[in-house]
Structure formats: C-alpha cells, structure tokens
Nucleic acid binder design. Structure first.
Lengths: 204, 204
DNA sequence: GATTTAAATTTACATGTTGTCAAATTAAAT
DNA sequence: ATTTAATTTGACAACATGTAAATTTAAATC
C-alpha cells in the first residue's frame, strides 16, 4: 500500500497563542458555570447561557467540553484541584493526636465553607444522577480512607466505627447542615468538638 | 341581566366510583415516580415513563398533577405523610432526658433508613433547584425547632449550639453519610452516641 | 335502557434544550 | 501570501415539557 493517494502534505503548525486563547475560553466558561450554578441552580444552567456569559458560541462550548455533563465534570475537576487536597498529604503524615485531628477537620471545613453553594449544587447533582454520583462517591471514599488512617494510627477500639463517624462528621453535607442551623463561623468548631468526642468515645 | 342565555341546566352528578379510580391512578403514578426516582434518578424520570408504568396517558398525568414539579411535590408530600411525623408530637412531649433523645434520634433514623435512596434523590433535587429547595428547607426548619425545644428543656449552657448540632446530627444527609461509611444497622447507634455527647458537651 | 356527565384518551402543536453536522469565517502560524 | 485549525454561522434532529382541542369511554342519573 504505497501512499500515493491524495496526500495533502501538511505544513507543521504550532498552536501556540491559540492554545492560550482556548484555555482562556475554557476558564471563562467554567467561571460562568460555577457562578450560574451557585446562583441559579442546575435547571437554569444552559449551554446557551454559558456561551453568552463567557463570550463564545454555544458550539464552542460543545467543542471544548463535549456535553453539558462534560462541563459539569470539568467544574468538578476544577473544584477538586482548588480543594487543597495536596494539604491532605501533610495532614495524614502528621503525628497522630489532637493537632492532626484539628488540621484534618480544618482542611475540609475550610474548603466546604469557601464553596458552599457551589458544592451544594454539585453534590446535589451527584445525588440525583447515579452516573455523576459515582464521581462524588469516589471522592468521598478518599476522605473515608484518610479518616480510617488517622483513626487507626491513633489506636484504641472500634476503629471502623470511629472512622465512619469521623468521615461523616467531615462530610460536606454535615457541614452544610450545621451552617444552616447555626453560623458559619461556629461550624468548624462544632465539627471539631464532635470529632474529638467521637474518637474518644468507646463502644460502651 | 336575567340568565336567559343558553342555560345547560345540568343534572346533579356524583363522581363516586370515578373518584376512587382517580385516586388509584394518582397512587399508581406516585408509586411509579418513587420507584423510578430511587432506581434511576431524576434525569431519567419522564412524564412519558411515569404514564407508561402506571397505565395511563401522559396527558392524564398532567391532568392529575399539573407539571413534573407537581408530581415531585406530591411525592414529597406523600413521603412527609408516611414519615411518621405524628410521632414527633409525642416525642417532643416526653419528659426531657436520655429516653427522649433516643426516641428523637430513633424516629428520624428509622425514617431515613426506610426511604434512603428516594430521600437522597428528593433532597438532591432540593439542593440543585432553589425553588424546590425551599420546600425541603421548611421541613428541615421544623426538625431544628424540635431539636431546639428538646435541648432547651434539658437545660444547660450553649443551648443554641447544642440544638444546631443535634439538628445536623439527625439530618438525612448525615445519616446517609454514616450508612455510606459503615453499615445501616450501626448508623442509628452512632447518631445517638454523638447526639448524647453533643448535648453533654459544654463550651470548654 | 337511554341520557347526561366528566374523566381519560387521542391527536396536534408550541416551546425550549441538548447534541450534531457542514460550510463559511477568522486569526494565528508558517 | 499561504496554510492551518479553531471559531462562528446556520441548520437540523431528537427529546421532553406543557397546552389545547375533539373524541371516546364509563360511571351516574333519570
């Protein structure tokens, strides 16, 4: 099979600056998506609206993200990236004790507080859509693993139950419920106190 | 203005058995909605699908519930009706103490456990749709009020914070997170233990 | 049993949103 | 100036919601 067909004999082409512009478009769209999600919820988030607010065409949104679910996944990835999960490494490696627990709680509560409305929507989408739910679940699983490690290194009985409680206490949903009841300032303190007693609690 | 226009002079008509059939249709549709919501999530819940599974026409679903949101609200009302909230009255009136707290936790956890997947969807819809969210919020508000009453009657310091914690600990989302981490059997026990320590905890 | 009544069905249509496609346009790279 | 690839433009199909009318069906009344 010799390549004697109509070979277009392309000239090399480096996207260069065009890639930057694409990234800017991507960023603008994701920014718009985050804002609209947090403000108006999921139902009123349309590809049309995203395109308009980010100064591109609806078609471009499709080109860059594929589908609406694609946009959501990108939003989710972005959140995860901004989530300061790198700090989780340090926290897990701290010596077990009060300080580590406080840092653990602090990392999560800080993040939950910073993106509360947006996270509420995203987690909500995970709750109503099994397909998207697996993505959220995977992330929750990681928090559970970290909680398990921390509890195990602290020693004591009922490690499994304690880990379950710590994971649930540091979940976004629990934080959100606390804020809804009390004030956002106090929420982290309450989580920490509950976590402390959860870990010192033994199966009586 | 004499009523000399074409008066149809209607004959009295008692719906009787037809009302029963309408109720059956309503019930069948709601049953289908609950099942499909729990199993497949919200995106794949269509009026067409509901009609098919409940043996009526899509148009009939619209006649009976108005809109899709109407169906959801009816599902929500039904859940609330089945929720055993009547038992909340008794619980709130019990003498303050361990037993009351246990009953309080038990009523909610029992309900959460019975409809977990369905509740996850419904609460999820509340989280992504501000309009529907107010309905959920109103119900959460009631749990918060009950929690506040219980905490206040128990006396002690920091009633507001304790109430917030109790409300959050008895939220559906916290229960769901616990079940996801551990086992459903143990979840209620964990909630109860955390609630106990939350209420005995003072602001140190 | 014939007639009346109202619900349910059938049929049709308007709207909004997603997703896809192909041709034309634009701007960067060569 | 030419080539390249992204963006835009315009069009379309698919699907779901919601609405409206005429018709059919079955229960209630006489």
């Amino acid at each position: 099979m010799t390549k004697r067909q109509a070979e277009p004999e392309k000239r090399p082409y480096d996207l260069g600056k065009r890639l930057e512009q694409m990234d800017e478009s991507r960023a603008a769209i994701l920014r718009a998506a985050k804002a609209q999600l947090a403000a108006n919820g999921y139902r009123r988030l349309t590809m049309e609206g995203l395109a308009a607010e980010s100064g591109v065409t609806r078609q471009t949104v499709h080109n860059l993200f594929g589908t609406k679910t694609g946009v959501l996944e990108a939003v989710f990835d972005l959140i995860a990236l901004e989530s300061g999960m790198e700090r989780m490494r340090e926290v897990v490696m701290l010596p077990p004790g009060e300080a580590q627990l406080a840092r653990f709680v602090g990392v999560f509560c800080g993040f939950w507080a910073k993106n509360r409305m947006l996270l509420r929507r995203v987690h909500g989408i995970g709750a109503i859509d099994p397909e998207f739910g697996t993505v959220i679940e995977a992330r929750n699983q990681r928090r559970r693993m970290a909680a398990t490690r921390i509890v195990q290194r602290m020693g004591g009985d009922d490690a499994a139950q304690k880990a379950a409680m710590l994971a649930a206490l540091t979940s976004f949903e629990f934080f959100d419920a606390l804020v809804e009841s009390g004030s956002e300032m106090e929420a982290e303190g309450m989580v920490l106190r509950l976590a402390r007693s959860a870990l010192s609690l033994s199966q009586e």
